[in-house]
Design a protein around this nucleic acid. Structure first.
Lengths: 270, 270
DNA sequence: CGAGTCATCATGTCTAGACATAAAACCGCC
DNA sequence: GGCGGTTTTATGTCTAGACATGATGACTCG
């Protein structure tokens, strides 16, 4: 395959008709969508075309994609439009740009996958089941050594919560949480007996960082009793630490019976 | 706090001096970086300022951020620059835009986190342990119903592989894999007795999509024997399906003893 | 008073051109 | 040939203005 001298061909949309005049005026009636279809923007077309070339293998990793000025000619549009389209691909990790040299198809790194951790209420609803929860424990107290090891907290107060989430009546997850009241003082005033803490925090607090740890455990008798599963049954444990600008907001540990639970993650280029 | 009428204040950089003339000429010598510092672009400044306002909680979820024309005045720049900056924040999920209404701080309902799934060899090396593996099984055969349920394959041949990965002599993971020979015919010629299949595929095949499923299981006697763990011990099972443009490439199932294994994921805004 | 119409306004997309920057390529020199 | 300065060039950033789109609210008419 030639070095892209033929540019983007045979992928996506037909070549744009050359009705875009190149006189000095900015009048451009051809911007109007002529057909009734919901035609994507030129920007999207360029992005999709390039992406298709990369995905099909026509432009392998390391391949130089056409220069901006070539794409400008090809799509009969301004450089700004091409540049913005490519910038989007850079953000998504599909290509890399080098001054003077050009733009190149990125060489993929490891399998990188994204997981969306919804709050449990949303998760259960998305499964089409009826959500309910019991607040088991709500304790406001001074931070102990345990709390400090999980929260980056000095000596302030914390709120300790435990609740059991149900999906259509069956135990779905056990949640143990501590909230840093230095960072989230409003939480003091909330009972958390009608709204679970997860969604409340989503709506009231912005975080800048979070770390998750996923592990597998077996149920001890106490846990088995709460979750109504057999002793020794496999469970997935998800721990999450959340920060806002260096300040710890909350630590939460969720335990799901593995029998009805798994996580799925989607590949992302970057 | 007022409805943002004061705009972005006291965050990030000092107000830009009004040397950017507003006459009709496009000459703008003040674009030159005047100080030696590596000053970020105006674009980045706007993004960072808005992000800081969101992160600090000054602009809570649902809050309307200043209109483009207000930011245009504030930063003394063109609308295009402001628009591009906000577009970046939209991509990362920080804000949402509504025509006629304005731009609003987004209300998230999911923690989004990324996991890097390295191949096992890389993973073990990163742990500072000595990697080794045994090829347990290598079978080339026609696809069965089982294969078809995992691979989107019609009737072609597949390569079935099983191998056991060791970290410093201890069983680290059991890998069961099937490879679609329709998509990856080169794999026929590879013995996989010196290089494990993961890295080989990584270097030879480009994929466009992958899906991962993470679950928890307990070890049955056979598995316990292979992994040298107790019967009933918790294990993490990672399944991965990989496609290239609708064509299934490979399905792999890795089972790790939970005792020495957990996954960690980092928050990403989007 | 309700329904349909129209003006308004913020964002969405795009243009043609400007200057800035960094790295590759070229060239002369030793 | 190898070194260092100069030129070239592709990307980086930005502008001022154009038209499109869609939602909102006001206004008009039955």
């Amino acid at each position: 395959m030639g070095l892209g001298s033929q540019g983007i061909s045979s992928v996506g949309y037909p070549e744009r008709p050359c009705t875009r005049q190149s006189n000095g005026l900015t009048m451009k009636s051809d911007m109007k969508r002529t057909d009734g279809k919901d035609e994507p923007s030129l920007n999207d077309r360029i992005k999709n075309d390039i992406e298709a070339n990369i995905m099909s293998g026509a432009w392998p990793p390391g391949h130089r994609i056409p220069y901006e000025h070539e794409l400008t000619q090809q799509y009969n549009c301004s450089r700004m439009t091409v540049s913005k389209a490519i910038a989007g691909l850079v953000d998504r990790g599909f290509v890399e740009r080098k001054k003077r040299a050009g733009t190149f198809v990125a060489i993929p790194n490891a399998h990188r996958a994204c997981i969306n951790f919804f709050d449990v209420r949303t998760e259960v609803s998305r499964l089409g089941k009826i959500y309910d929860f019991d607040l088991i424990e709500r304790i406001e107290r001074k931070a102990t050594a345990f709390d400090r090891s999980h929260l980056d907290i000095r000596a302030g107060n914390i709120l300790q919560l435990a609740c059991l989430h149900f999906a259509s009546g069956k135990p779905y997850a056990l949640e143990n949480r501590i909230i840093n009241l230095e960072q989230v003082p409003e939480a003091c005033a909330v009972a958390f007996d009608h709204e679970p803490p997860g969604p409340w925090l989503f709506e009231h607090v912005r975080w800048s960082d979070a770390r998750h740890k996923i592990s597998a455990i077996t149920a001890d008798p106490g846990l088995a009793n709460i979750l109504q599963i057999k002793v020794g049954a496999a469970c997935i444990e998800i721990e999450r630490w959340t920060w806002r600008n260096k300040g710890s907001i909350t630590y939460v540990k969720q335990i799901h019976p593995a029998e009805h639970y798994s996580l799925s993650a989607e590949f992302v280029a970057r």
